[in-house]
Amino acid sequence: MGKPVEVSEITFDDQVLKSGQPVLVDFWAPWCAPCRRLAPIVEELAQEYEGRVTFTKLNTDESPNVAARYGIMSIPTIMVFKNGHPVKQVVGLRPKKDLKQQLDEALVV
């Protein structure tokens, strides 16, 4: 219901890279305070973009190889994938307006 889906090393390829619609991935970890602060903003966006973008979250502690594959060295990081390719990367806690703008940009690319 517009809530981000948890993905892992095992499900990443199927749920993100092979998805038929654009996918947003929120890279986070339980100890990361700003990630906790970002989560409710991402959840709001998930509702607003429901049907247009698939929202997922990936725990970098549990799936370090995926984070390493995309060179994640700072969380929260948000990435948007289209047809298996990353088209946008946003690092750090950002205002919702910024995130919407970045997401809209990614959708028209």
Binding site: A29, C32, M73, S74, I75, V91
Partner: peptide
Amino acid sequence: YMGKGVSNCAVCDAAFF
């Protein structure tokens, strides 16, 4: 290099180092 080694938040990023 912000987010690629430059950080303002050790609490967020320490575990990557």
